[in-house]
Write a protein that binds this DNA or RNA. Structure first.
Length: 317
DNA sequence: CGTTTTTGACCCGCGC
DNA sequence: GCGCGGGTCAAAAACG
């Protein structure tokens, strides 16, 4: 099937969000709204956007697309920047690159360092006395995060990595719970949250936090023929495959070399569910673009979907 | 039997 | 200070 349509999905706060559909899986980027991407139903530019994301050799165009939406009162070099409330929202409305890159580095590169050996011992000693001795003199550090919405009947979309669920919480004002997953790879600190949109229960909102420091553990099956028998794997394949495209995108537009694991990917030429691949491409592209660059583009969310979109974006409508 | 999920309790940040 | 909500822990259960 090649049916595609553009629909509108409501965020938790009721604000509309563009969402393009390709068959039964669709993905949207709420943060685009209000920055030249106020798509409406049937908007052809919206369809083109999704094509850029998932279907064609889109890499340069994708970058352009992302760079176009410059929030008002912001430096043109800074695109859409989402930050944790305690870190950026208190800052003036003229963020500069340095603040962003510093956040990026602390979130992405210093992850294993923020706990010294002394802290480790101290923590263990405290452990005997208290149940959960969290550091009291240090704010909990947040990884860069971004969310995307995917129209799917499956809550937990496969993305090529292995996740272990470590929590589930009821979401305020929503009948659907939020699930918390952590990458099962030992050294990898990536987390993700999965929840269904209250406005449209068919939409799954996936929020990724951090960046994988390892290749996807999922390998293709030799005799894989199609998605019918194993939808989960079809999604997995779809999410792994775009790495090649992702690499070329990175090499063309990033000043620094891609992480080693990107190059370590072997070509995966097996078939996949195209619609799921769209979501996969979307995620991978945006993960790369917003989470791994050294500061030119960094996207963070504030936790929930409404947090993902800066208030000035939401209020622009 | 190892791994993953479930789930209640707990921690933490924030607003009032 | 207190309450609320988000996020995490960890023991027990479930699963393969």
């Amino acid at each position: 099937m090649d049916r595609r349509e553009a629909v509108k999905v409501e965020n938790f706060d009721g604000s509309p969000t563009f969402c393009a559909t390709n068959d039964h899986v669709q993905t949207s980027f709420p943060f685009m709204q209000g920055h030249g991407f106020d798509f409406v139903d049937g908007d052809k530019s919206a369809l083109g956007f999704m094509e850029l994301l998932g279907m064609q050799d889109f890499s340069p165009s994708l970058l352009d697309v992302i760079q176009v939406p410059v929030p008002p009162v912001q430096d043109p070099n800074v695109q859409v920047v989402m930050e944790s409330p305690s870190e950026l929202l208190n800052q003036p409305a003229t963020p500069n690159s340095s603040s962003i890159s510093s956040v990026s580095s602390e979130g992405l590169n210093d992850e294993p360092v923020n706990k010294s050996a002394d802290d480790e011992v101290e923590e263990q000693e405290k452990n005997k006395k208290e149940l959960k001795p969290k550091k009291t003199n240090q704010k909990r550090q947040r990884e860069p995060r971004f969310a995307f919405m995917t129209k799917s009947e499956v809550d937990h979309l496969e993305d090529g990595y292995r996740w272990r669920k470590y929590g589930q919480k009821a979401v305020k004002n929503s009948p659907f719970p939020r699930s918390y997953y952590r990458c099962t790879t030992a050294s990898c600190n990536v987390k993700k949250r999965v929840e269904r949109s209250f406005g449209d229960p068919s939409v799954v909102v996936t929020t990724y936090e951090g960046q994988h420091s390892h290749p996807s553990p999922v390998m293709p099956r030799p005799n894989f023929t199609g998605p019918a028998s194993d939808p989960g794997f079809s999604s997995t394949a779809a999410f792994v495959m775009p790495m090649q495209r992702r690499l070329s995108f990175y090499q063309q537009h990033q000043s620094q070399p891609p992480p080693p694991f990107v190059n370590s990917f072997s070509p995966l030429g097996f078939g996949c569910n195209e619609s799921t691949a769209n979501a996969a491409v979307n995620y991978l592209q945006f993960e790369k673009h917003f989470c791994s660059s050294s500061g030119s583009n960094l996207l963070k969310d504030h936790g929930l979907l409404q947090d993902l979109v800066p208030s000035h974006m939401l209020n622009e409508e």
